[in-house]
């Protein structure tokens, strides 16, 4: 692999996306969301100097949780399928550049674009909150940004896996939206149903819930914004007792990184080795 080519593709992807008006829209949405999260959770909304991880903050985390995966998985989903559909991919491949370089370059380029959007969004919100005034330390804020970035990486990676299998952007979007819905709601609903029907124990519920990267993100956000696991009930207590505060954090981060690397790695294999032809 040639770093020069990877950088070139990265720059092309980032440049094209940054010019896109969707990028502006995402960023505005992120900013608004982040501003509200900050205002209502760690830094704002308080009584007698006390603040808590209230419902409002929670529902805003919820919005972030809906928003970031959707954008990331669709961005990933159309990344390669769109070029395939437009025919620009075979044309690009007729030049002395390899599929490895294209894949890696595209992923990094789009990841950077989404990360830029997240940074800008949270950054603008942070500037706003700083001017309005806040107290306390900013590590929760930074961890939230980091978690959002990881969540975006996860779903971008899943999107790429969808993309290498799709010949058409529309098909990729369809599959992406379905997977998004699955991760956001259907999967959890299934686990809840199973728990009620089969009376699953704490360990099983914990394990099943953490299969889902969005659930991992949520648990980690709760840990960041409200440093107690009791809020998650017996399962949270089990997690803290078994792994410790630090351990749970490492576990959650590992799962998010795992969910980034596995679909990405498999997508890479499919794109560069298993699916060798671009007609």
């Amino acid at each position: 692999m040639d770093t020069k080519n990877i950088l070139l593709i990265m720059k092309k992807e980032a440049g094209e996306s940054l010019k896109n008006r969707w990028f502006v829209l995402y960023t505005i949405c992120f900013s608004a969301l982040a501003l509200l999260v900050l205002l209502f959770s760690t830094m704002g909304g308080d009584i007698a100097g006390y603040s808590g991880f209230g419902r409002t903050a929670a529902s805003l985390i919820n919005l972030v949780l809906l928003f970031i995966p959707l954008i990331a998985i669709i961005t990933g989903g159309v990344s390669i399928s769109n070029e395939r559909e437009n025919g620009t991919l075979p044309y690009l491949l007729s030049h002395p550049i390899s599929k490895n370089e294209i894949f890696v370059g595209k992923f990094l380029g789009l990841l950077i674009t989404i990360w830029f959007s997240i940074l800008l969004g949270f950054g603008l919100a942070g500037v706003g909150v700083a001017i309005i005034g806040q107290q306390g330390d900013i590590s929760g804020y930074l961890l939230t940004v980091l978690l959002s970035a990881l969540l975006a990486a996860c779903f971008l990676s899943i999107g790429f896996l969808v993309s290498v299998y799709s010949g058409k952007a529309s098909k990729a979007i369809g599959i992406s939206v379905f997977l998004w819905l699955f991760f956001i709601i259907l999967g959890d609903l299934g686990i809840m149903g199973t728990t009620v029907a089969m009376d699953l124990g704490i360990k099983q519920v914990f394990a099943l819930a953490l299969l889902n990267p969005t659930e991992v993100f949520k648990v980690a956000s709760v840990l960041v914004l409200s440093p107690r696991f009791e809020i998650l009930g017996p399962v949270g207590v089990y997690a803290i007792r078994t792994f410790g505060q630090q351990g749970v954090f490492y576990l959650l981060f590992s799962i998010l990184i795992f969910w980034t690397l596995i679909p990405l790695g498999y997508g890479y294999l499919v794109f560069t080795r298993l699916r060798r032809e671009e007609k």
Partner: peptide
Amino acid sequence: IKCILGLLD
């Protein structure tokens, strides 16, 4: 032509 360009196996 696509074979010559290495686009196809």
